[in-house]
Amino acid sequence: MIRGATSWSLLAWIISFTILTTLVISLRFWSARIQKRRFYLDDGFVLASYVAMLAQIGLGLWGLYHGAGNPSSDYLPEELIVQTKLLVAVSTTWIFSTTVVKLAVLQLYMRIFSTAAFKRWAISLMVVVVCFGITFLVVFITHCHPVSQEWDPVPWGWCRDLKYSELSSISMNLALDTAIVVLPMPWLWNLQMPTSKKIVVMIMFGFGFATIAIMCYRIDQTVHSDPDPMIAIARVGLLSNVELWLGIIVACLPTMAPFFREYIQPGLSTLLQQTIPHHCLVLEARAPEGAVTKCWWL
């Protein structure tokens, strides 16, 4: 049963961001319907990441039901066994989801930028991302030998220090996310569009820096972890979830423009016209035929 203030706080985070990411995913496909476009590969990657995220959420809720977020001393023996099993499962769902959402962003880039040079960079990064996912999937699954060593120990079994696996995966993840966020910036600036729109688009893609900030904080929390291992796992686990939720949101934001143009922009324009007074700036200029008065509506 869920107990303790920390556990209820974790539950609130899970419910809030699950609703938010579900809404964003829905708006992505609503926008696709408005645009009458076909189903792209990056749509499939986002859906796969979302499904893995839901699986991770389910595991997280099961963990909360068995005491996650509480000090080790508050666990029953059978609850500790559940937590060690869940740690393996959550690690695999997380690495799969974060890998696939990176592929979704890179595939979206390749739809936007058609130059051969950009595609070479994007494909190279996709290969690195796939290698990252496969490598750390193996690392997390083989954390103990045998896999059941932590909850069903045998004399000849062993486990690696989880902190080193966490630090290496987060560091590599941080480097990849930074490269993915920075990659399109030079090409974005060269697009044939007004500078103001370029800045808006760059800011939209730049939301990826939020996940980078979360990862930096996650590294700090891993290095300076709580002495109680179960408290430390709960804190780092929340940060890894936030990183994943934000990654899915960032992957969907650039695809949602049709929805905003169709439903939000008209209502916003009407609201601004009704609430913001129009001021006429009268300018008088001299011309050969006489004085000319112009009125600029602000």
Results as ranks from 00 to 15, higher is better:
Gly4Ile: 08
Ala5Tyr: 12
Leu27Glu: 09
Trp30Met: 12
Ala32Arg: 15
Arg38Ala: 14
Leu41Thr: 11
Met53Glu: 10
Ala55Asn: 13
Ile57Phe: 11
Gly63Glu: 08
Leu64Gly: 08
Leu64Trp: 05
Tyr65Cys: 02
Ala68Phe: 09
Ala68His: 04
Pro71Asp: 01
Asp74Glu: 14
Asp74His: 10
Tyr75Gln: 04
Ile81Glu: 12
Leu87Thr: 13
Leu87Ala: 14
Ser91Ile: 02
Ser91Asn: 12
Thr92Glu: 14
Thr93Ser: 11
Leu103Pro: 03
Leu103Met: 14
Tyr109Gln: 06
Arg111Val: 08
Ile112Arg: 07
Phe113Val: 12
Arg120Glu: 11
Ala122His: 03
Ala122Arg: 03
Leu125Gly: 01
Phe132Glu: 03
Ile134Cys: 09
His145Gln: 13
His145Lys: 13
His145Thr: 14
Val147Glu: 02
Val147Asn: 02
Gln149Met: 10
Gln149Val: 00
Leu162Cys: 02
Ser171Met: 11
Ser171Asn: 08
Met172Gly: 08
Leu176Asp: 01
Leu176Pro: 03
Trp187Pro: 00
Asn190Lys: 15
Gln192Ile: 13
Met193Lys: 06
Met193Pro: 07
Met193Leu: 12
Met193Gln: 07
Pro194Ser: 07
Pro194Phe: 04
Lys198Val: 08
Val200Arg: 00
Val201Cys: 10
Met202His: 02
Met204Ser: 09
Phe205Trp: 08
Phe205Thr: 04
Phe209Val: 14
Thr211Leu: 04
Tyr217Lys: 13
Ile219Asp: 00
Ile219Ser: 03
Asp220Asn: 14
Gln221Trp: 10
Thr222Phe: 07
Thr222Asn: 04
Val223Phe: 09
His224Trp: 13
Asp228Cys: 04
Met230Gln: 11
Ile231His: 09
Ala234Phe: 04
Arg235Glu: 12
Val236Phe: 08
Leu238Pro: 05
Leu238Trp: 06
Asn241Cys: 11
Trp245Ser: 07
Gly247Ser: 15
Ile249Gln: 02
Val250Pro: 02
Cys252Ser: 10
Pro254Arg: 03
Ala257Pro: 00
Pro258Trp: 02
Tyr263Ala: 04
Ser269Cys: 05
Leu272Val: 15
Val282Phe: 10
Leu283Ser: 14
Glu284Phe: 08
Ala285Gln: 14
Glu289Thr: 11
Val292Gly: 02
Lys294Leu: 15
